[in-house]
């Protein structure tokens, strides 16, 4: 009786070691990764201006 009881308890506790309990909840369009150092550069007005120039030069929307 006591043995089965503690056996079952040990089994349950063993099952508790399943995976990390903390979760990273993902939502569409929300960036979850570490900070991208290139992001600040890309968002800078100079870089945006450069991209826009290049974009307008050859972009075609097929």
């Amino acid at each position: 009786m006591r043995k089965t009881f503690f056996g079952a308890l040990c089994l349950l506790i063993l099952a508790g070691c399943y995976g990390p309990v903390d979760i990273a909840y993902h939502e569409p369009a929300r960036y979850m990764g570490s900070m991208d150092p290139l992001l600040a550069k890309e968002r800078s007005p100079e870089q945006q201006e450069l991209l826009l120039q290049r974009f307008n030069k050859g972009q075609t929307d097929r």
């Binding site: 369009a29 929300r30 960036y31 890309e42 991209l51 826009l52 290049r54 972009q59």
Partner: peptide, 16 residues
Amino acid sequence: RGGRPDALGWQTAYPA
């Protein structure tokens, strides 16, 4: 391909 900077507007996939 050239002349097609796919990079423009990419940062908006993850808004600031």
